[in-house]
Simulated assay, not measured.
Amino acid sequence: MIEVTNITKKYGSFFALDDITLDIASNKVTAIVGENGSGKSTLLNIMGRLNNATSGSVLLDSKDINTYASLEYACKIATLKQANTINLRLRVIDLVGFGRYPHNQGRLNADDILIVEESLAFMQCLDLRDKFIDQLSGGQLQRVYIAMILAQDTDVMLLDEPLNNLDLKHAHELMELIRQLVDEHGKTVVIIMHDLNMVYRYVDNIIALKHGRLICDGAVDDVLNEHMLHEIYDMHFEIQKCETHTVAFIK
């Protein structure tokens, strides 16, 4: 679905990304992992057309992403940035309604309202529909933002550290919902994550970056071993396979 070929991003002489080539599989959860400053957000933002590569190409459905009209692209890929600051006193229902803009340019009809409410219900925050966003906790607001891009109704969702501001319980609940989007609704999700045990539990494929370079990519169970974790993080890990999932411990 998404083909990244020889992507490089430079700031002066600094390589934020250095010749990255990889494919994003359809109908899978793909996690991007790596240390802070490894290029994770830069790569995600280039795929989402929020940043331009210095060189290389990204294809969506075999077509260069830069050749899509803006609204057409927004009907195909939705991106949730790491930092979202809206200094307006908006109700939740109105914020989530922004997700319908690529389809109707702000003129919501009855079908749009239904999609917005279904998105809120899926994210288990329909009860917040009439609250103002400045009344929400960080975890509630994160769910509402994801409901907004869910209302955008795209095949691909790019999520930059959506587990931030979530406690352990709500982080697991969110990952369960993401798995449901992929397994039952055919979505393709690319997500930046730091918690390796969440990766082992919920993710299909992995992309690992270090200093702007691709360290590995592939199925989690195939490539994310103790040797590779040491390569990524310069730390020693022990991996144990439990009855239902895999756990990584720092030695």
Results as ranks from 00 to 15, higher is better:
Y202E: 10
E161I: 06
E161F: 11
L141Y: 12
K210C: 11
A147P: 08
N165Q: 12
V182F: 06
N165P: 14
H172D: 11
Q140T: 00
L181A: 08
K131Q: 14
L196Q: 08
C125H: 02
R143E: 08
N205C: 03
V199Q: 04
V190W: 02
Q124Y: 11
N165M: 02
N165R: 06
D195R: 09
L181S: 08
K169M: 14
R179I: 09
K210M: 07
L196S: 10
I149L: 03
D134K: 10
L177R: 11
V190F: 06
A147L: 02
L150I: 04
M175I: 01
I178G: 05
A208V: 13
M175W: 00
M157A: 00
L128K: 13
N205G: 07
G139Q: 03
L159C: 04
M157C: 05
L209A: 05
D127R: 04
G186W: 08
D127T: 13
A151L: 09
L126G: 08
P162H: 05
H170G: 02
Q124N: 15
D155Q: 13
D183M: 12
E173W: 10
E184V: 14
L159P: 02
D204C: 14
S137K: 13
K169R: 14
L166R: 06
L150K: 00
I149K: 00
R143F: 08
L163T: 15
L181K: 06
Y145P: 04
Q140K: 07
G138I: 00
E161Y: 05
I178L: 15
V182D: 11
V190D: 12
L141Q: 15
L163P: 11
V203P: 15
V203E: 13
D153M: 04
M157R: 14
R179A: 13
F132V: 05
I133M: 13
Q152D: 02
F132G: 02
A208H: 07
V144N: 01
Q140R: 05
V182M: 09
L196M: 08
G138C: 01
I149F: 02
R143H: 05
F132L: 09
M193S: 04
M157L: 10
D195S: 05
L126D: 08
M175A: 08
L158W: 04
D204T: 05
V144T: 00
Q152L: 06
D195N: 12
D127L: 12
N197A: 13
I178S: 14
L136Q: 09
L163D: 10
V144S: 01
L166N: 01
L196D: 11
R143K: 09
L128S: 03
L166D: 00
D134L: 03
I206E: 07
T188G: 07
R179C: 15
H172G: 12
E184N: 15
M198C: 15
E184H: 12
L150F: 04
K210H: 00
L174H: 01
I133Y: 07
R143P: 08
L150V: 03
G139K: 03
L174T: 05
A151V: 00
L177E: 11
H194D: 03
K131R: 12
A151M: 02
E176I: 14
V190H: 10
D155A: 13
L141A: 02
F132T: 06
M198D: 15
V189M: 03
F132E: 00
Q135Y: 03
L136V: 00
D130M: 13
Q180Y: 11
H172M: 15
